[in-house]
Structures are given as C-alpha cells and as structure tokens.
Design a protein around this nucleic acid. Sequence first.
DNA 1: GTCTGCTATTAGACTAAGTCTAAACCGGGA
DNA 2: TCCCGGTTTAGACTTAGTCTAATAGCAGAC
Lengths: 134, 134
Amino acid sequence: MARSEIEKILLAKGVKATPQRVVIADYLMHTESHPTADEILEATSNKLPVALSRATVYNTLNTLVEAGVIQEVFTDPGATRYDANITDHHHFVDVKSGKIMDIPKDLVPVLQEKLGEKYKVHSYKVTFYGEMKD
Amino acid sequence: MARSEIEKILLAKGVKATPQRVVIADYLMHTESHPTADEILEATSNKLPVALSRATVYNTLNTLVEAGVIQEVFTDPGATRYDANITDHHHFVDVKSGKIMDIPKDLVPVLQEKLGEKYKVHSYKVTFYGEMKD
DNA sequence: GTCTGCTATTAGACTAAGTCTAAACCGGGA
DNA sequence: TCCCGGTTTAGACTTAGTCTAATAGCAGAC
C-alpha cells in the first residue's frame, strides 16, 4: 500500500493526513501483529525526522479508531492493542507466544439472534485461546 | 451461600480460608455485577474489623483465579473485572450502562472445531455488545 | 505575501491499575 | 514456648493512558 493510498484512506474518513498519522496508519496496515501503543511508538519513531511524542501516538490512535480506520482489540489485561483490519472478524490468541491472529468472520456462525428477545446485539467478538499447530 | 460453605470451597481448591479471602469470595459469589478490584475493596472493607489493604485484594484475587475459584473478565480497557461464575459462559455488555450480564454457554453453538486443523482451541469467549430491552 | 484562526503536535505533569518489597503478623507444629 | 512458613500490610514503584498549556503549522481571507 503506497503512502498516497493511505492519505486517501484518511481523507476519505475525514481525517487530515498529517505525517504522524500517515506513518502510524502505514505501520499498522503493514503489520500482521497487533501492536500496543508503545510498540507503535517505537516502530514509527525513526520514520520521521523527529520522533513522535507519546501523546501524539495516543491522540492519533484514538482519532483513527473514532474515524473507523483502525480497531482496538481487548484480548488480555494490560495494554490495548490496535488492528488495521477493520473488517468484522475475530481473534485467536496463542497462549504460548501471546501472538494474536485474525479469524475471518465467516468461520464463525451468526450469533446475534441466539440471545433472544431481551438483548439487542450490536456486535459480538469471539476470542479463541489455544495453540497454533505447526 | 453460608460462610462455612465458602470456607469449604476454598479448602477444596487448596486455598487456606483466611478471613480476608472468605470475605472477598463471599462478596463475589453474592453479586450479579462483575466488579473491579477497587469496587471489591470498597465493598468488603467494612466487613472486617480492619479494612483490607489494596495489596491483599489483588493478592487474593490472583490467588482465587489461579485456584479456579473465580474468573477474570476482559471486556473493555481499564480495570480487570472478576466473576465468581466459573462455569463456562459468555458475556453481554450493555453499551449504555456498561453493565455486564452472563450468557449461558448453551446459547452459543460449539465453535472450537470451526477454525480447522491449524488451531488447537483450548477455550473461547464470546462478548456481545448491545442494549438490554426492557 | 501576510495576517488570522483553527487544528495538530508536543513535553511533561498527572491519574489510575496493578505489582513489588520489606516488615509485621499470624497459626500450627516440635 | 519457640520457630517457621504462609498471609497481610503500607507504601514505594511501574506502566498505560489522559490532561494541560504552550507551540507549531497549515488553510483561507484579505
């Protein structure tokens, strides 16, 4: 994904494409991992003439989440993780390595009507815990 | 559930039944909510002649989780929540109030074999987000 | 071009959740 | 009784994340 592509995505979502935002979005869209804010800070700081501030990383991540460019992932305690895969999907956590894998939505049957009348379900997330076989 | 019942449960799980532990387990087993450590601290502090220390609450919760007496719930960022319902079950988060409801396991179809050969699933949790109808 | 005003970025103070440490406190055996 | 292990404790510490107030930078008006 070229740099200008990312600018287009940001603009299309109503977010001004500043260098800091482009660098962070670029990093997230090219990683398979689900990094924390600190990992993002470290990974992106050498991509700009001046290192990003911690506050900017958090500001930017929150802005991108609100704009629907990225998603937050809550699989475990501690740090929030971020995911540029904004299609509706689930997660698999490898309990040995802590690695998180995306699980396509269509592997899991539709669940929202399972709860019955009392609950109006907006969305649901499945988190699998286990081990990868290799 | 009588106080002595809780002592029995703790002992059966190999945990010494100190007053602090009994009070915390007792509170968790009698609440429908999914309290945070701070809420537990506040709710239990008047149940003993001397208020519990924060460290004790965390120590105890971790001990009880390891012993399988209670479960941790990760539905949102911020504080970890605790649940004395240790049967396999899922959660519904009311996005308006933040309240968390238990969803019995049998409302959700079996999912562990859906991922195919590559993944060995130990467990999975479904978190529904939406609104309660009243 | 330059003024103006808004938004973004920044360093660093601050808050909140949780862990760690070292000391004191038990309670059950020898 | 004394000892010894586990438990509790206050408070220091760590870490994730927010807030604040100042600065930087850009886009439009003139």
